[in-house]
């Protein structure tokens, strides 16, 4: 089946102020099918936010795309003019960001901001747009919709604001929603609510979602597939349960191991420390000859420092970039 979005060998670089570059994305290949939920799991500096922004060509001015393509239904989005891509954004593919506090215009009412998105992409009359806004508000807020639509962003809580942002994103019925850490600044109860909203939308509207996060538990009962990123590359990919329960890449294993859980509550006496990944996140301005995780990996081998591993099959349709699993030629997918 034709994927909805096909990212092919994407490379993105940022220019730094004093000269020099930071390599944010290296050779990233990713496919999203219709109605599929794909989780992008990674820590800060892994390039996950750059990936989300690059998909809609919304990178900051100091970014350069060094080859690669983002193909949406046969068109390479990276080659479109700004008018053409404006027509696509918010309409066929939507993108929502992390900070609900700053994602909304401070002096425009919430409902009006949803209407703006409709206005940008359709020629309907004002009444038709207003009607649609009401429907969206009811869909996302149940009974409180009217009141919240008339409120200003500073009168709403973080969770309510993020729901307005989601309403804006789905107003024109896009096929794909890219969400970059949409719940990171919210408390866990609200986080669950927002995931619930997204799940319901996915069902009702057959919406594909690319969910970028550093919190693995959000993806647990939500994503179909997980893609793990480290130092600008995808290093593991597979079904959600596969990746979370039996992660293959040493980084994924180490990262998931650092997560505190209730079951491991120290309760003071044990004074045992939480596992960490030794060392620091890699300097992204350097070009690595070998695997970027090598210096922090507990299972490193000599070959790891010499060259970058290519993908190998890891069972159950997953793939992993690690010499532990041998290598196969041309993992073209």
């Amino acid at each position: 089946m034709e994927p909805l979005l096909d990212v092919q060998a994407l490379n993105v670089r940022y220019h730094q102020q004093g000269g020099g570059h930071v390599f944010a994305l290296r050779d990233v290949c990713l496919q999203i099918g219709a109605g599929e939920v794909v989780g992008v799991l990674g820590e800060s500096g892994s390039g996950k936010s750059t990936l989300a922004a690059a998909m809609l060509a919304i990178l900051p001015p100091n970014a350069t795309i060094d080859g690669g393509a983002v193909v949406w239904q046969g068109t390479n989005l990276l080659k479109l003019t700004s008018e053409e891509i404006e027509r696509l954004r918010g309409n066929r593919v939507s993108l929502i960001f992390q900070e609900p506090a700053t994602a909304l215009h401070p002096t425009m009412r919430a409902g009006a901001q949803i209407e703006e998105v409709l206005r940008a992409h359709s020629n309907e009359s004002k009444e038709a747009r207003r009607q649609k806004v009401q429907e969206l508000l009811e869909l996302i807020f149940a009974d409180d919709g009217q009141r919240i639509g008339a409120a200003y962003p500073h009168q709403l809580s973080g969770g309510q604001r993020q729901r307005i942002v989601i309403a804006q994103a789905i107003a024109c019925n896009p096929g794909l929603l890219i969400a970059d850490e949409p719940t990171a600044s919210l408390d866990p109860v609200t986080q669950r609510e927002i995931i619930g909203v997204l799940k319901a939308l996915r069902q009702k509207r057959d919406l594909a979602i690319l969910f970028v996060t550093h919190s693995a538990e959000l993806l647990e009962n939500f994503a179909d597939r997980i893609v793990v990123m480290y130092a600008g590359r995808i290093i593991e990919e597979g079904g959600t349960q596969e990746v979370l329960r039996s992660p293959k890449h040493p980084y994924t294993q180490a990262m998931l191991n650092c997560r505190p859980t209730l079951e491991r509550s120290g309760a003071g006496q044990s004074d045992s420390r939480i596992p960490v990944i030794p060392g620091d996140a890699p300097e992204m301005s350097l070009d690595f000859a070998g695997c970027a995780f090598e210096s922090r990996c507990g299972e490193r081998m000599k070959i790891c420092g010499e060259r970058m591993p290519q993908f190998s099959e890891s069972g159950n349709g997953g793939r992993v970039r690690c010499f532990k699993f041998g290598e196969q030629e041309s993992m073209g997918r």
Partner: peptide, 12 residues
């Protein structure tokens, strides 16, 4: 932030 968010929604 809201400028970037609005740009992502395709506002001209």
């Amino acid at each position: 932030g809201f400028m970037r968010a609005a740009e992502a929604h395709g506002i001209s």
